[in-house]
Simulated assay, not measured.
Amino acid sequence: MAVDPTCPVCRTADIVCGKWTLLLVRDLAEGNTRFGELERSLTGISPRTLSLRLRALEEEGIVERRTYPEVPPRVEYALTEKGRALLPIIEGMRAYGQRWLGLEDCASDPVAATAASVA
């Protein structure tokens, strides 16, 4: 739905502005995470929406899905290099919220330390 598919800002906004996307990336910054852990950390997201968002991020190359051959099967999600490159954007949003909106850090904000190591 980019206004201009050749504009890098439009294309990036197309990817990251989907509901829950940046929060998923924020939570995946902690490392490998299972579906149930993501569902618990994102209060209000439905399992269907979570599944669709993860699949879309996987198709964009932002999230990697790993299935382990165990019984029962274990599936974990992790950020790819492309996904980790979004962490400075999230860090910038956190800093903006603190400075201009008077908000404190979230209870679980793994991005601050991770974004510094990516930059």
Rank of each mutant, 00 (worst) to 15 (best):
L42W: 02
R11K: 07
T114V: 15
Y77S: 09
G36H: 14
Y96K: 01
W20K: 09
I90Q: 05
R40V: 12
R40H: 10
Y96I: 02
S108T: 09
D4P: 01
S108V: 08
T21N: 07
E30W: 05
S41L: 04
V63H: 03
C106M: 15
G61H: 04
G31N: 10
R34T: 07
E30H: 11
G61Y: 00
T114E: 15
A119P: 09
V25G: 00
L57N: 02
S41K: 10
T33Q: 14
R99K: 14
Y68C: 07
I62P: 02
M1G: 11
G102T: 11
I62G: 02
L79M: 00
G92P: 11
R53Y: 01
A78G: 05
G18K: 15
E104F: 04
G83T: 06
E76V: 07
T80R: 07
R84N: 07
L87G: 04
L24M: 05
L50H: 05
R84D: 03
T67P: 05
G36K: 15
D14H: 11
G102D: 06
E76D: 14
E58A: 13
A85K: 09
Y68P: 11
L24H: 01
V3S: 14
E64R: 05
R84M: 03
V9A: 10
M1L: 07
C17I: 03
D105S: 08
Y96H: 08
R26K: 15
V3W: 13
L52Y: 14
V75W: 01
V3I: 15
S46M: 07
T114Y: 06
Q98S: 06
A29Q: 06
E76W: 05
R66M: 08
A29V: 03
A115V: 00
L23I: 01
R48G: 10
Y96P: 00
C17P: 04
A13F: 02
M1V: 07
S41D: 10
P69F: 04
N32S: 13
L38M: 09
C10K: 03
R40I: 09
S51G: 07
G18A: 13
G92S: 15
V71M: 12
P110T: 03
R53E: 01
A107D: 12
N32K: 14
D105C: 01
G83V: 06
M1T: 07
G97Q: 12
C17D: 12
L50Q: 02
I45K: 02
L87S: 02
A112R: 15
C17R: 14
R74M: 09
S108R: 12
L103D: 06
L38V: 09
P69A: 14
T33L: 06
R94Q: 06
P73Y: 06
